[in-house]
């Protein structure tokens, strides 16, 4: 693995991700003002004391953005990790055990996927109390259906391979087969999928917050900042676009990295056939 072999697009993605994660981790240290601190007039233009201007309540937009990175990234990451653990565990179980377990889990998954994610989330969030852990859980469960579908497909592909059959015939237990035979062979597609699910979680969380159903104010998250400042648009104030651009930027960076990862693994498999 050489540094030179990483293409420019992937570098852009890696650097972008690094900046976002740095902001998220060290938000209180690098933010010039407090998260909820009113520091000036509303919707001040960019420049001067406030690099990105102020928001609809006169808070520093840059500081809101940095704190927003923390909330957005941690919530999205938590939801993705949870959705992944759930999806991978269930899908591998379905693929290895087979039979009725597989049928049951797969049909439930089909049913959940037949309702569009956003619509499903709206229905469920209409009933449940507005709390952070519930939001994360809902995002995770809904998203795990996608992970399940991929995980099962990948695991079934590996399960039918003869080395798995050989392990079964040797008398190996189920845990050995899942963790030692199947998992190592599914890591690269799953890793790429993790990136994509994370990008989706960022977009999804932002959309929910934008609709007023995600993170609740006064806590800052990128979708919520868009919502707070959307009324400024009519007056030509671009404050709402800045967090929007941050969301887009993060998603693009993740996609760039995943794109490169996928190309790398697929070229590993590629080989010339018979001459």
């Amino acid at each position: 693995m050489k540094w030179r072999a990483i293409p420019l697009s992937a570098w852009i993605g890696i650097v972008g991700l690094a900046i976002a994660i740095f902001c998220a981790v060290f938000a209180p240290l690098i933010a010039p003002y407090g998260e909820r601190e009113v520091v000036g007039d509303i919707w001040l233009p960019m420049g001067g004391d406030f690099v990105l201007g102020t928001d609809n309540l006169g808070r520093d937009l840059l500081s809101r953005l940095i704190y927003g990175a923390q909330t957005t990234i941690f919530v999205a990451l938590a939801a993705t990790v949870l959705s992944f653990s759930l999806g991978v565990m269930l899908s591998f179980t379905a693929a290895v055990v087979g039979g009725w377990t597989d049928q049951g889990l797969s049909r439930i998954n089909d049913l959940m996927m037949s309702i569009p994610t956003l619509i499903f989330a709206l229905i469920v969030l209409a009933v449940l109390p507005q709390e952070l852990w519930i939001l994360i859980l809902v995002m995770a469960v809904l998203d795990s259906t996608r992970v399940f579908r991929l995980g099962r497909a990948v695991a079934v592909d590996v399960t039918v391979m003869e080395f798995v059959e050989a392990a079964r015939l040797r008398g190996e237990g189920r845990m050995w087969i899942i963790f030692r035979e199947i998992l190592p062979n599914t890591l690269s597609p799953l890793l790429a999928e993790f990136g994509l699910r994370f990008a989706f979680a960022v977009l999804f969380l932002s959309t929910l917050s934008f609709l007023g159903l995600g993170i609740q104010p006064p806590e800052a998250d990128w979708g919520g900042i868009v919502k707070d400042n959307k009324d400024g648009i009519i007056f030509g104030i671009p404050a709402a676009l800045i967090p929007g651009a941050a969301i887009a930027g993060l998603a693009i960076c993740v996609n760039l990295v995943v794109d490169w990862l996928l190309k790398r693994t697929s070229s590993l498999k590629g080989g010339r056939g018979d001459g």
Binding site: A199, V226, L241, A245, A248, I252, V254
Partner: peptide
Amino acid sequence: LGAISLPEFFVGY
């Protein structure tokens, strides 16, 4: 690839 990553509200605004 970029367009896929844009949230609808961002494009809209």
